[in-house]
Every structure is written in C-alpha cells, then in structure tokens.
Design a protein around this nucleic acid. Structure first.
Ligand SMILES: [Mn+2]
Ligand SMILES: [Mn+2]
Ligand SMILES: [Zn+2]
Ligand SMILES: [Zn+2]
Lengths: 152, 152
DNA sequence: AATAGAAATGGTATTCATTTTCATATATGG
DNA sequence: CCATATATGAAAATGAATACCATTTCTATT
C-alpha cells in the first residue's frame, strides 16, 4: 500500500543518502496500522525478502524518533513500540492490552496542561509521555473475567 | 528518619511474613525523597550493612507496585524508577533530566480527561502513564545550551 | 564512466536490567 | 519446639538495545 508515502518519509529524514534498507523499514512501517517493535520490523523486512540488519532497523527508528516522525510507547515488558506520526504533530493513543489495537485520542486538554505545568514550575524544554491502555469492548465481550487485580 | 513509617508499609503489603529484608528495602525507600532504581536500592541496602538480595529487591518493588504503594517512571534508558506514593492516590511528576530531582504536580485535569476518554471509547480498566521531564531552573542557569534538539 | 571519500550497513560481541530457577533459610501459628 | 508454607538469594538465563568495526554502497566530482 502507498509507495510514495515511504519515499516522502525517506526524504524527510536528515540522512544524506537514500538506501534500500531505510526504504524497506519505512515501507513496512507505512503498512503497519498499529505500533510495532524494532524486532518485529526486523522480522517483517526479512519476511519481505528485503533483509535489513537489526542494527539498521534500530538506527532508522532512532532517527525517525529524533525527527518526530514516529510516536513511541513502551509495552508492559518495556519494549519500545513505534508508529508513524500522522501529521507532524504527535498523538497519544489508547491501546488495548488484550489485542494491541490502538486508537489516537484527542489530547488537547493534556497538551495545554503540560504547557502550564512546565511554565509554572520554571522548567525548560518540557517533554511529556502520556499512555493509555485498557480493554476494548471487543476483547471484553470475548474474554472471561480474570481474578486478582490491584491497580487503584 | 521515620522508623514507624516503614513498619506501616510492611504491614500494608499482603505478604504473609515480616522479614528483615523487606523491612530494609522499605526503610531505604522511605528515606529517598526522589525516584530510585532497583539497582540503587540494592546498593543502598548493601551500603547500610543490611544486605538484601537483588531478587528480593525486585520482588518487593513489584509487590509495592501491585498494591499501589509506589509511583513508577522510566528513565531515558528505560530503567524503572520507584518512589513511595504519598497518600494512597497516585501522583505524577515533573522530573529534571539533568539533576533528576522531581516534584509532584497537580494532575486532576488529566485524571478527569483519562476517565472521559476511556468511557467514550468503550474501554474497560483503563490505566494511564503520564510523565513530564524538563530542565529545572537551577540546572538551566548552570548549564551551557547544547546544540541539536529534535522534539517538536 | 571512473574515482575518492563520506556515510551506511550488518554480523558479532557486549552490556545490563530484569526474570527464572531452585536449593536453602526462616517466619509464624499452633 | 515443630511443621510447613513462605521467603530468600546465588547463579544462570533472558532479551532488548548498543558498541564495534570491517565491508559495502551512495553520491558528488572529475
Ligand atoms: Mn502530547
Ligand atoms: Mn494519574
Ligand atoms: Zn482489544
Ligand atoms: Zn535539575
């Protein structure tokens, strides 16, 4: 799906060169509607026949992150998951802990709150992480309730 | 500082037994005004002469987390940092990326936002992570500006 | 097209937080 | 004191992320 899309992204990176590998990572990333890990991307490019070294996958992701082209979250195990950032501005997501599907949420309220907090505390260069997880309606109706719990 | 405080916490945990080790971890934790890692806690108990196994440190922290007695953030490297939760209800923090000092911030706005998002999306058991980092006033005036950047 | 130099690649080794295992120690109720 | 469920911790395993560095590949220039 969408070949020109990945090309645009390659161009958006500061890297001096357009390589087959970087293109492959971006191409796979464009096709992923949800968050994926570096390891998954590595496996996906391999499955596509376009082998890309794990090192390069990490490098490309780090670069994408540094230039604000992806949103990043961490799963329960702490693994980083990446997703292309739709329109320049970053987004926040509500992710289902059961099936992994995510949806972007409107976080204007939070963005404003962050600005105000930073300002009133006299902090510079304030960055923020906001992650929401839950159980989506589909998964709830498909899964028997489990005991325990603890989060307040 | 404050001996009874740690005792109270030991009692608050569901564990069946009060052990020297768990007490030691809690005791050190009470003395930490800022976020600390499991590794640091391990080193601190060792320095205190009360050697506690790394495994036990991790176990105790996991338990504290499960029962909502600590707030958890991740540093840039992804390492988990723990801090005792002041009054039952969890808090969010603004952490200085330079000196590590943190201050709790008022996040009622965000809590309300989270509830609303979860509800309107039809998600159950919504959990959230909100982390703010920046450069505090003290560090700013003490540090020469660095080039680059990227976060938008 | 050939060339040179800079940048990118990727296999391998390494790091390091966290988890698992399991044999041993200990807390606690009776 | 005893029995035993529970807790401990040394050692090994795990696994994501990074460092190293010899080799390959762009790309501007001649
Ligand atoms: Mn935001
Ligand atoms: Mn909150
Ligand atoms: Zn789901
Ligand atoms: Zn500071």
């Amino acid at each position: 799906m969408s070949c020109g899309n990945a090309d645009l992204l390659v161009r958006a990176l500061p890297a001096a060169r357009r390589t087959r590998q970087r293109g492959a990572v971006l191409h796979v990333l464009v096709d992923c509607s949800d968050f994926v890990s570096a390891q998954q991307l590595h496996a996906l490019t391999t499955a596509d026949g376009i082998g890309v070294g794990l090192t390069t996958v990490y490098r490309t992701l780090r670069e994408l992150e540094a230039y604000g082209r992806v949103d990043v979250v961490r799963d329960d195990a702490g693994e980083r998951l990446y997703r292309l950032r739709p329109f320049g501005r970053h987004r926040h997501y509500l992710v289902c802990r059961s099936c992994g599907r995510s949806r972007a949420v409107d976080a204007e309220v939070v963005e404003a709150w962050v600005d105000e907090i930073g300002e009133s505390a006299g902090f510079d260069a304030v960055e923020h992480t906001v992650e929401l997880t839950g159980i989506c309606a589909t998964c709830r109706s498909a899964t028997p309730p489990l005991a325990g719990g603890g989060e307040q």
